[in-house]
Design a protein around this nucleic acid. Structure first.
Length: 1059
RNA sequence: GGGCCCGUAGCUUAGCUUGGUGGAGCGCACGGCUGAUAACCGUGAGGUCCUGCGUUCGAAUCGCAGCGGGCCCA
């Protein structure tokens, strides 16, 4: 086998399909992981995406980051554990299944049967998982897709059970009445993180609560939830505020109203009062203690039996009336005021959002329907001060979009408040990328952490393993299946989901029966235990002891309050320490305007769309390079196209030498690197050095997870070093004779550079790397690992690294650019040689670079000679043009100024320059008088010799002498001819080594003569066997064309020589 | 309303830690190259460095305030 020529253009789709098949057919992933067994352990925990059925750009980016890092780690000698994870329980799937079955409420589920429902959910989740796995695999991501961890597996459920048992044993598990976010449709508590805030219009009403035993006196409150008024128990005021007792007049009637002093004006305006008088002011403390009558006491009988007072609360703000309606059953803060003051937690609302019998008149009514009725009732009693609407952000259930309500219900909690200090301590031990993700963002979140409500009143979730005795109220928490079997003797194959576990009854020591608490876990608790669940703990301890805690995790910044947090909380419960050692927090994908991608905005870009247009490697490279991982990524199609172009260039650079190598049967096994060392040119040493520097740069950047810098370094190497420079330099060498050592040196260097480069790009562009590797390595080396991803990461070879040479080459590139610039000014195109270039270096380094890399410079500038001026000096052929400066001459010479100017103009620039070098110079005016002039009176400018153009570069200045002579014209015209014949060969689609017959008729005898000087050169360049050049000839051939060359018309005919 | 992050050319961005004349790429205009060729190269135009105030001899960079965007919270 030999290295093969590649004829095709870069076709990502084709390559990626082939590589995916290759990986699959050869079990590449598992063999690579196997290959690293026993090396340094690297435990990665995949943050489990929810099984929605489709991935989006953000999840694609997430997995691409993970994959790139893991591939890099693997190549650097790490034994990696990386089970993919799936979050498969919870309300979103229940909602989808309910929708598919046409269900409206929990009742429908109960009548369908919980077992049937659970089976549907499971089936659905598994199907979605399979779909998503395929999508992730299209990205070329390598995780353990064969054996992922799934939250619905019994083995996983046990991990959650074990953890909650730990909580119970450590007295961190608590049950109690709490106000929770409640979805009346799903009939369950939902987590703070499941509440979605959306704009919504609600009533905004001011209500007068009548003070007890004080006729016509009221305390005024404001609310947007009239339906909570039947549940009102108290009013809160801020102890720091000043309140006013106001005599307010409306329609000739007066009332006494109490509210915060600073809000009197605005409240009375709302109530359309016409006049008012502040009778006295009170402190908040003084207002507290007032007793009032419930405004709906006659409609809600229970309320008539309860006392209602005003209390103080620090959280009350100076908004609306400064007096806050308190319904302890319907608000978190209300609940706290209630508990603090020993108030009843009155909650006459049931789980589906309708009033219970306790609500009197309203019982059975839906709370939202009750809003207008409550308002009407208040109005009838003349207790409504004003009625309006307000548009505000209100919480909705993230799944079914129903507005949430707050309900005091019985729930299970983990006492995070007891763990807070330890958590804050633990996060300082974790390495955060970027640093502020931990020290600022996460820390801030933990400081505000509240107890974690882990119970949900649903079906599809991990059942909470708590059994409660119906007679003595004792509770038992089961930690494992084994324990459950031991305690009850049930079938050990029993599935640990509802409804199966619901049926298990555990006998209590009191003689009663323990039944399971019906709740399931909040899904955040599922994923929280991932780091040990993925190690099959507590089912087995072995892996856990070897691997835990995780070396690395990475997720988006939304997971600060999500998975970073839930994992830490659960791990503190289970093990008292953080479950991860380092965390990379990445950003979000936004649309090209920086807006969040969402279905409603219609700006969602699917990863599949990108793959279809540009391929997975382009998508990968784009998302990795576009911004720092922790910054948000503004998706931009043009940028993806640019990245694709870079990959295309890489492909072209790769395939460029292959035809020559194939033709020459180049075999890297036979041409050792040592054997070509004596033939290495400076440019060869340079590209080898750049290659080493690239490895160093990539290592440095990746050690800080600066993946964007990694890709930018690689792209720069491909574009600047390889494509724009090295390949240009070596082109002529590749079409030399068969065993020319100069050519073999190029082959070997290119070969080594490419073998190294495939390894360097492998973690990021795994398909392209594999494709190139399979050709240039597998085709020549039977011993080589069968996939590039099994290779060791290249070590930079310091012997090949020459930073001075790299700097010098950079200078040469600056000079070449400047020469191009000067040529353009002189109107001399590159095809025409120039007789010389002159370089004025600013420092020794530039001079040294020019001397050392002279041949590169001559070659790339197409010059016959390079002159190097001594550092710091000017080119001696440069003339000086002197112009008098009237603005400095005028004030000194006044009326004689004109004569002085005339005199200066008469002296040559060179003479003025040398004369003024000493500081002043005496000159003779036309009237014979002698005056003294100073340097600021003359402006000097360089005067370029004829046909010379100049340009500056970083480090000096270059002059290009574009004057013509016979040799140059001859060569210029010859190249024009060659170029056109090559073009025609291309048009005839001739083989590179095919010979031709050429007839060149030139309608200018002088040019015929010039071209004839280069006859053999032309023949060699275009491979013409027979070649006729002349003025009076016929331009015949298979293909004939007329050309205009610099104003000279030419007629060329060519034919293949063999026909 | 609060916390964290971001704001630099039409677009995507480097520079900011450690203050000293803001660099690239894309796009655009002009030119060049031509055995990588549906590729490639050069030149040019294009900047209130979000705004304001402050510190400083000097601010894209440091501080404060504001505006806009993102995530999270209230």
């Amino acid at each position: 086998m030999m290295i093969e020529e590649v004829a095709d253009q870069y076709n990502a789709k084709k390559i990626e399909k082939r590589i995916h098949e290759f990986w699959e057919d050869n079990y590449a992933y598992s063999k690579v992981r196997q290959h690293r067994k026993g090396e340094k352990k690297f435990f990665f925990v995949d943050g489990p995406p929810y099984t929605t059925g489709h991935i989006h750009l953000g999840t694609a980016w997430n997995k691409i980051i993970k994959d790139s890092i893991l591939r890099y780690k693997s190549m650097n000698g790490h034994d990696i554990l990386d089970r993919a994870g799936w979050d498969m329980h919870g309300l979103p799937i229940e909602v989808k299944v309910e929708a598919a079955l046409g269900f409206k409420s929990k009742k429908d589920i109960e009548s369908y049967g919980v077992e049937n429902f659970i089976n549907k959910c499971k089936e659905f989740a598994l199907k979605q998982k399979d779909d998503m796995t395929k999508q992730f695999q299209e990205l070329g991501t390598w995780l353990d897709w064969e054996d992922p961890y799934m939250t619905l597996k019994d083995e996983y459920i046990e991990a959650a059970w074990w953890t909650i048992k730990q909580a119970h044993e450590k007295d961190l598990l608590e049950v109690g009445k709490r106000v929770v976010n409640w979805c009346p449709r799903c009939e369950t508590a939902i987590a703070d993180s499941e509440v979605e805030y959306e704009e919504r219009t609600d009533p905004s009403i001011y209500i007068k609560f009548p003070l007890k035993d004080k006729a016509n006196s009221f305390i005024v409150i404001w609310t947007t939830t009239p339906w909570t008024i039947p549940s009102n128990i108290a009013v809160a005021v801020n102890p720091e505020f000043e309140y006013a007792k106001v005599k307010a007049e409306k329609n000739r009637k007066t009332e006494i109203l109490i509210m915060a002093t600073e809000l009197v004006e605005s409240v009375l305006r709302k109530g359309r009062y016409t006049d008012y008088e502040i009778l006295e002011t009170l402190t908040g403390e003084e207002v507290a203690g007032l007793e009032y009558e419930h405004p709906l006491a006659d409609l809600v009988p229970i309320q008539a039996e309860m006392k209602h007072h005003v209390y103080t609360a620090d959280y009350v703000t100076a908004e609306n009336t400064g007096c806050v309606h308190i319904a302890p059953g319907h608000g978190v803060e209300d609940f706290e005021v209630g508990i603090k003051n020993g108030l009843p937690i009155f909650c006459p609302v049931s789980s589906n959002g309708s009033y219970t019998r306790d609500a009197g008149k309203y019982s059975g009514m839906n709370i939202r329907d009750a809003n207008p009725i409550v308002i009407e009732d208040l109005d009838k009693k003349n207790l409504l001060l004003s009625e309006d609407e307000i548009s505000h952000r209100y919480g909705h259930c993230w799944r079914c979009k129903t507005p949430i309500i707050y309900l005091a219900t019985k729930q299970w909690f983990i006492k995070i408040s007891d763990l807070k200090d330890d958590m804050l301590d633990e996060i300082t031990k974790v390495k955060w990328y970027p640093e502020w993700a931990g020290s600022a963002r996460f820390k801030d979140w933990i400081e505000g952490a509240r107890d974690w409500c882990i119970s949900r009143q649903r079906y599809w979730g991990i059942p909470i393993p708590v059994w409660n005795c119906d007679s003595c109220d004792e509770i038992k928490v089961i930690g494992t299946r084994e324990e459950l079997v031991k305690v009850t003797g049930i079938d050990s194959d029993l599935e640990l989901h509802r409804p199966y576990v619901d049926e298990i009854i555990i006998p209590c020591s009191c003689g009663g029966s323990m039944r399971r608490v019906e709740d399931v876990f909040d899904v955040w608790f599922d994923s929280a235990v991932a780091s040990w669940a993925t190690l099959r703990f507590p089912h087995t301890r072995e892996l856990f002891d070897e691997w835990w805690p995780a070396d690395f995790i990475t997720e988006g910044h939304d997971q600060t309050r999500g998975w970073f947090y839930s994992q830490l909380g659960a791990s503190m419960v289970g093990f008292g320490k953080a479950p991860y050692k380092s965390v990379l927090m990445h950003g979000f994908t936004l649309d090209d305007a920086g807006k969040k991608m969402s279905k409603s905005l219609g700006n969602v870009v699917q990863p599949q769309e990108v793959i279809d247009r540009f391929g997975a490697d382009a998508l990968r490279t784009y998302v990795l390079s576009s911004s720092a991982p922790w910054e948000d990524l503004k998706f931009n199609w043009d940028e993806v196209a640019t990245i694709h172009r870079t990959l295309n260039i890489l492909w072209n650079v790769y395939r460029f030498p292959l035809p020559y190598m194939a033709l020459d049967r180049f075999d890297p096994n036979k041409i050792s690197f040592e054997s070509i060392v004596p033939h290495l040119r400076n440019e060869d040493k340079w590209i080898l050095s750049r290659m080493q520097s690239l490895i160093v740069d990539v290592n440095t950047s990746i050690s800080n997870y600066e993946l964007h810098k990694v890709i930018r370094s690689i792209n720069e190497f491909i574009l600047e070093d390889l494509s724009r420079w090295y390949i240009q330099l070596i082109r002529p060498r590749t079409w030399n004779e068969a065993d020319d050592p100069d050519k073999l040196a190029v082959y070997r260097v290119l070969y080594d550079v490419f073998v190294t480069l495939t390894k360097v790009i492998a973690p990021f562009m795994p398909h392209l790397a594999e494709e190139i590797y399979s050709n240039i390595v597998l085709n020549v080396d039977k011993e080589a690992p069968f996939t590039v991803h099994m290779c060791d990461w290249p070590k930079p070879d310091e012997n090949l690294r020459d930073l001075e040479l790299e700097a010098q080459m950079k200078t040469i590139r600056y000079i070449v650019e400047a020469v191009s610039n000067a040529r353009q000014k002189a109107g001399r195109k590159l095809r025409w040689p120039v007789s010389r270039i002159v370089i004025e270096p600013e420092n020794e380094m530039v001079a040294k670079a020019t001397a050392r890399l002279k041949s590169v410079l001559m070659d790339q500038t197409n010059t016959k000679q390079v002159f190097l001026v001594k550092t710091g000096e000017s080119w001696e052929e440069l003339g000086v043009e002197a112009t008098p400066n009237p603005s400095t001459i005028g004030p000194v010479f006044k009326g004689d100024a004109g004569k002085v100017i005339k005199a200066i103009n008469a002296i040559s620039g060179n003479d003025l320059k040398s004369g003024l070098a000493s500081g002043s110079m005496e000159i003779e005016l036309e009237d014979g008088s002698i005056v003294s002039i100073t340097p600021e009176m003359v402006n000097f400018e360089d005067k370029l010799p004829k046909d010379v153009a100049s340009a500056d570069f970083t480090g000096g200045k270059v002059y290009v002498d574009a004057s013509l002579n016979r040799e140059i014209e001859s060569e210029g015209f010859a190249r024009e001819v060659i170029r056109r014949i090559q073009d025609m060969r291309k048009e005839l689609d001739l083989e590179v080594d095919e010979n031709i017959i050429a007839h060149i008729k030139i309608d200018d005898e002088r040019v015929v003569d010039l071209v004839l000087d280069m006859e053999t050169f032309i023949a060699k360049e275009v491979r013409s066997k027979v070649q006729v050049i002349g003025y009076d000839i016929e331009a015949t051939g298979k293909l004939t064309k007329d050309w205009d060359v610099e104003g000279v018309s030419m007629h060329i005919g060519i034919s293949p020589a063999d026909e």
